[in-house]
Amino acid sequence: MTLSSIKKIALKVVCFLFASIYLISFNLHANDAQMKSLINDITKMYMSSMVYVFKSQPIINDKNIDKKELLGKRFIDNIKQTYLAKYNEEFPKEDHFVKTVLLQAMVEVMDDNKALLYDDEIGFKGIIPATFAFQLSAKLSTKGVGLKIKFTRTAGQIRNKLNRPDSWESSVMKKIQNNPKIYYDENALLNGRPAIRQFTPLPMAHYCLACHGIPDNNPLNAGKKRSEWTNIDITGFEMENWTIDDFGGGVSISIEKSVLE
């Protein structure tokens, strides 16, 4: 074997190695981008459903009106419209089964509430964004699909104990509380298994203050003398006196990596 042929072979080997490294790194980046895109889509779908539930309070609570907009395919169509209006982009394609499971779970949650929705002897039904979000989280946890969604806030400020943050969520909120921004972790764990996790802070909105703000914000006090005001909100909890500048908690989404493969 001549020196030049050895050089040629060496060059080919080096080229092959570089090409392999490039392809592997390209693939890793592509997977990373896909994972981020999926978790973003899930977050925005979930948040759109909460917004739609907020906007639908009159339909939810009014008596003797049709509730079809809140059920089945119509409910999903309304969430899609809300998504379009909120993010100014088309609703994500159902190109991953976790998105399908999420949409199915939304329909199932509203159907679980069907008897209550149609009960004309009950005024306030208690189907508000936070309770809808929790019911959806609870429903997803029964599906065994490696997707966990939680609407949470710093410990000690949680009304529903089952919504308390885990250690990952607590540490993330500690980091971002003063400078709220999306926190993405591609090397986290869920149920002891490798997972991607994302925490999306929610800015406090005026509608949050109707329950969590001060008695001035409480719709139950509207038109009453100040001496007759209550600091108990419509859901039966004591109001927290939060303001529009307070940290609003956020949406925590975790997806097991095995689901993404």
Partner: peptide
């Protein structure tokens, strides 16, 4: 019905 509590985490 008149005593309904909608949210049981309360």
């Amino acid at each position: 019905k008149e005593n309904y509590i909608p949210i049981l985490s309360a």
